[in-house]
């Protein structure tokens, strides 16, 4: 009996050879460039390490302790969640409203469709460079505009003030993410069966009622998807922050990824930086699990 099973497995493995050959290159690449580095990350997080040479100074969990005692870590954490919160609220809402206006029809629809999507086509690095100039205290268009319309008293060095650096980055971030949310909302709003809307119109439902009782419920799964994408994408935020402020001034605009990056590659504290990134991953996985559970619970309620 056991022998039979073994022969069956061998047969199955033999039949799988063509498939294994096709996935082998990818597996090799993943082992070299993902799994080995990933395992090493856990090792490095237990050592005091300067970024070169052998790992010699074992410090146990001390790196984790020092990260969890670092106020700046919590600040970066808070900043990341401010970014996520604002992005979830403003970017998805505005993206949806724009897509709804386009869906209802408007003059020059093609123009708006194209123009509103432009920010998404520019990379975060280039956008960071452009907006850094926009926020520039002297030649920056923002301050010059404020002076032009008589609000000169509001002009300030946006990116080098502790209380405005992070909001300025968040505004730029939202400016870049709205087009994506708009596009996805638009694609999904278009799948709404036309006869549903027509039937509602014949029944005398007002514009607002149709929005409230037909379109928004239809869009809930889309909002859920965009929410998950927003959270996972924003947790990784780095490019824009690094180009605009490098987390400054004085760490006021640090997010998780820039915190890890500057600890590792600027301060050469690789042990604590790696420990911080592992804590970050634990949080990410925790959030992903929670989101999946919420989704499951939500799905049950709908049934």
């Amino acid at each position: 009996m056991g022998k039979h099973k073994k022969a069956g497995l061998l047969q199955e493995l033999k039949e799988s050879i063509p498939a294994y050959i096709l996935i082998l290159p990818t597996l090799v690449i993943l082992v070299i460039f993902l799994f080995i580095p990933f395992a090493n990350a856990f090792r490095i997080s237990l050592y005091k390490y300067k970024g070169y040479g052998e790992l010699t100074k074992y410090v146990g969990l001390k790196n984790y302790g020092s990260v969890l005692q670092d106020d700046q870590f919590y600040r970066a954490f808070g900043n990341t969640f401010q970014l996520i919160g604002c992005d979830l609220i403003f970017s998805i809402t505005i993206g949806f409203i724009l897509s709804y206006i386009l869906f209802r029809g408007i003059r020059m629809k093609r123009f708006f469709n194209t123009a509103l999507f432009i920010p998404y086509l520019i990379s975060m690095v280039v956008i960071g460079c452009i907006w850094r100039i926009i926020y520039d205290p002297t030649i920056g268009p923002l301050n010059q505009l404020l002076e032009l319309i008589g609000l000169g008293s509001l002009a300030r060095p946006w990116l080098s003030q502790i209380d405005t650096a992070l909001p300025a980055i968040i505004v730029t971030w939202i400016w870049r993410t709205i087009p994506f949310n708009m596009l996805i909302c638009y694609a999904n709003i278009m799948t709404l069966p036309k006869d549903h809307l027509e039937a509602a119109e014949i029944d005398g439902a007002s514009q607002f009622q149709r929005l409230r009782y037909i379109i928004v419920p239809h869009m809930i799964p889309t909002f859920a998807t965009l929410g998950v994408l927003t959270v996972t994408n924003d947790l990784r935020a780095f490019d824009l922050v690094w180009v605009m402020t490098q987390g400054g001034p004085g760490g006021a605009s640090d997010v998780l990824t820039s915190y890890v990056y500057s600890n590792a590659f600027v301060s050469q504290k690789f042990g604590p930086a790696t420990a911080a990134s592992i804590i970050m991953m634990a949080v990410m996985i925790g959030i992903t699990v929670i989101l999946q559970l919420v989704k499951k619970a939500g799905g049950k309620n709908e049934e």
Binding site: I23, L30, L34, P37, A41, V260, Y261, M281
Partner: peptide, 20 residues
Amino acid sequence: VILINMLIPTPIILLPMYLQ
């Protein structure tokens, strides 16, 4: 095995990948 990558944030493997 291939999809698990989606759960690993890039900063974690940044330094070890560089060493690699």
